[in-house]
């Protein structure tokens, strides 16, 4: 079933708060270190503070988990028409307004930016505006999913 172009423009308000912890940052940094040492700004609060940050800082792609759980509100909605077994991640972008640091409580507001049909596939672009629970802007995450045609 193709994704209905009429789904573009749907929005979801900020969802469940996501607690950014030192442990989660350390685990993500270790998993993306590529065999090299983990950058100490991810694990040592003193190093992070010496760089001007309130606590250990998240790696540049750390907020993907929050973004994808927010995206799921659309992807898993039967009305979306998305067959997840046919989904391939097409594009991803993070624009950081300020670094996410341990201690942050973040929420994501979701917007389905566009649904386009191209070469038999549906291209779905979703934007998450990620803020603190107090409304401070932290990151804009944009992901494009390719839903492969039958």
């Amino acid at each position: 079933m193709p994704v209905d172009a009429g789904q573009a423009g749907r929005t979801w308000p900020p969802g469940e708060p996501f607690e950014v912890t030192r442990a989660a940052i350390a685990a993500f940094a270790a998993a993306t270190a590529g065999g090299g040492p983990v950058h100490p700004a991810h694990t040592d609060p003193e190093v992070a503070r010496s760089l001007g940050h309130a606590d250990v800082v998240a790696p540049p792609t750390f907020l993907v988990g929050l973004a994808q759980s927010s995206d799921a509100r659309f992807v898993d909605d039967p009305a979306s028409g998305v067959d997840f077994s046919r989904v391939v991640h097409g594009e991803q972008r993070f624009t950081h307004h300020r670094p996410a640091v341990a201690g942050d409580r973040l929420v994501a507001a979701l917007t389905v930016e566009s649904v386009r049909r191209m070469a038999g596939n549906d291209l779905v672009t979703m934007r998450n505006d990620i803020t603190t629970t107090d409304g401070e802007s932290v990151c804009t995450s944009t992901s494009m999913l390719v839903v492969r045609g039958e």
Binding site: H39, L51, V57, A58, P59, P60, V88, E91, Q92, H96
Partner: peptide
């Protein structure tokens, strides 16, 4: 500084 990366995007 990981936080110096203010924007990062790619296609797969």
């Amino acid at each position: 500084d990981p936080a110096a990366v203010v924007d990062y995007g790619t296609r797969f």
